[in-house]
C-alpha cells in the first residue's frame, strides 16, 4: 500500500517537532537536575569559605578565585592577539595564499581537542619552560585554546561594519589605523565582546587542558607561579573520586549557572547587534 504524500508530510512535521523539543528538553532536564540537587547546599557560607578536608567540607572560595584569575588573565592575553589577527585578516590584506595559510592555522587550532592542549601545555610550559603546575602555565594554555573563537567572532563582527563608514573616514583623510581604531572597532565592539564572552564560557567549563597545566592545588593561588584549582576541576575531582556528592552538585550548580548566564548575555548582545545592522 502506498501512503499518501500528504499524510507522510503530516507525520514528518509532527516527528521533527517532537525531536526539536526533545533536544531542548535535554537542556532543560540537565539544568533542572543540577538545580534541584544542588540548590539545597548552596549558601553564602559555601561561596565565601574555602574547601576543607579535600572538599568534603567547607565551600569553594579558593576555586572561584582560581577560576576568575585564570579566565581574566587568559582573556587579557587572548583578546588583543585575537582581535589583532581579525583586524589584520579583514582590513590589512586581500584574500591570498598568505591569509589562507593563517586561516588554516586558526581552523586547525579550533579543531584540536582540549586534552591535546593539556598534553602540549604539560610538556612545553610545565616541563620544558620549568613553570611547574602553575597559574601561568594554565593561563598560557587557555589563551591558545580560546584564541580561535575570539578570532572568528571578531572577524565576523568587523566584516559586518558597513563599508560606507570606512569610506567616510578615509575621505576625511584619516589613515588606515585611525579608521580602524576610531570607526571600525567601536562599531564592531559588541560583536567582539560576544566572542570574548563565549570564550570565557569555554574557559570556565574547561577541565582537561587545565588540570595538567594549572594543577589542582586547593590553596589559594597568590602568584603566577602558584598551582590552583578551578571550579570545573574541583567538580571533576569531587565527582570522580566520590568525595562528596552534596558539594559536587552544589559546585556543578554554580558552574552551570555562571556559564549559562555568561552565554545568555553573549547571545543577547549578539542579537542586539544583528538587529542593529539588518
Amino acid at each position: 500500500m502506498r501512503i499518501k504524500p500528504r499524510i507522510v508530510d503530516v507525520f514528518v512535521r509532527i516527528s521533527l517537532n517532537l525531536q526539536a523539543f526533545f533536544t531542548v528538553g535535554i537542556l532543560a532536564v540537565i539544568v533542572a537536575i543540577i538545580f534541584i540537587k544542588g540548590s539545597p547546599y548552596i549558601n553564602l557560607e559555601f561561596i565565601i569559605s574555602s574547601p576543607q578536608d579535600m572538599g568534603r567540607h567547607g565551600g569553594i572560595f579558593s576555586t572561584i578565585v582560581g577560576t576568575i584569575l585564570l579566565v581574566l588573565l587568559s582573556i587579557f592575553l587572548a583578546t588583543p592577539l585575537g582581535v589583532g589577527t581579525a583586524i589584520f585578516l579583514t582590513e590589512y590584506t586581500k584574500e591570498s595564499v598568505f591569509t589562507k595559510v593563517i586561516r588554516f592555522g586558526v581552523e586547525s587550532l579550533a579543531g584540536i581537542p582540549s586534552i591535546l592542549f593539556g598534553l602540549f601545555g604539560f610538556i612545553f610550559f610545565v616541563t620544558k619552560l620549568k613553570m611547574g603546575w602553575s597559574l601561568l602555565a594554565g593561563v598560557l594554555t587557555t589563551t591558545i585554546m580560546i584564541l580561535p573563537t575570539i578570532i572568528r567572532t571578531s572577524e565576523e563582527a568587523i566584516k559586518a561594519v558597513p563599508r560606507s563608514l570606512r569610506i567616510v573616514s578615509y575621505s576625511l583623510s584619516a589613515t588606515k589605523w585611525e579608521t580602524v581604531k576610531k570607526v571600525v572597532l567601536p562599531s564592531a565592539a559588541p560583536g567582539i565582546l560576544t566572542g570574548v564572552m563565549l570564550s570565557v564560557g569555554r574557559a570556565v567549563g574547561e577541565t582537561a587542558a587545565i588540570i595538567f597545566t594549572m594543577g589542582s592545588s586547593l590553596r589559594m593561588p597568590l602568584s603566577l607561579m602558584d598551582s590552583g584549582r578551578t571550579m570545573a576541576v574541583h567538580f571533576y575531582i569531587l565527582a570522580r573520586e566520590g568525595i562528596s556528592m552534596e558539594n559536587a552538585y552544589a559546585t556543578a550548580l554554580i558552574l552551570v549557572l555562571s556559564i549559562l548566564s555568561i552565554n545568555i548575555l553573549a547571545y543577547y548582545i549578539m542579537n542586539r547587534v544583528i538587529s542593529k545592522f539588518s
Binding site: R202, L255, I259, Y267
Partner: peptide, 26 residues
C-alpha cells in the same frame, strides 16, 4: 527560531564534566 536556536546552542556551553557526571549518576 529565536527561542530554539539559542537554547540549542546553550547545550554546547554545559561543561563536559557535567555531562560525564550526569552520565554516571543516571
Amino acid at each position: 527560531k529565536m527561542f530554539l536556536k539559542p537554547a540549542l546552542e546553550l547545550l554546547a556551553g554545559i561543561p563536559s564534566v557535567v555531562y560525564g557526571f550526569l552520565g554516571v549518576v543516571y
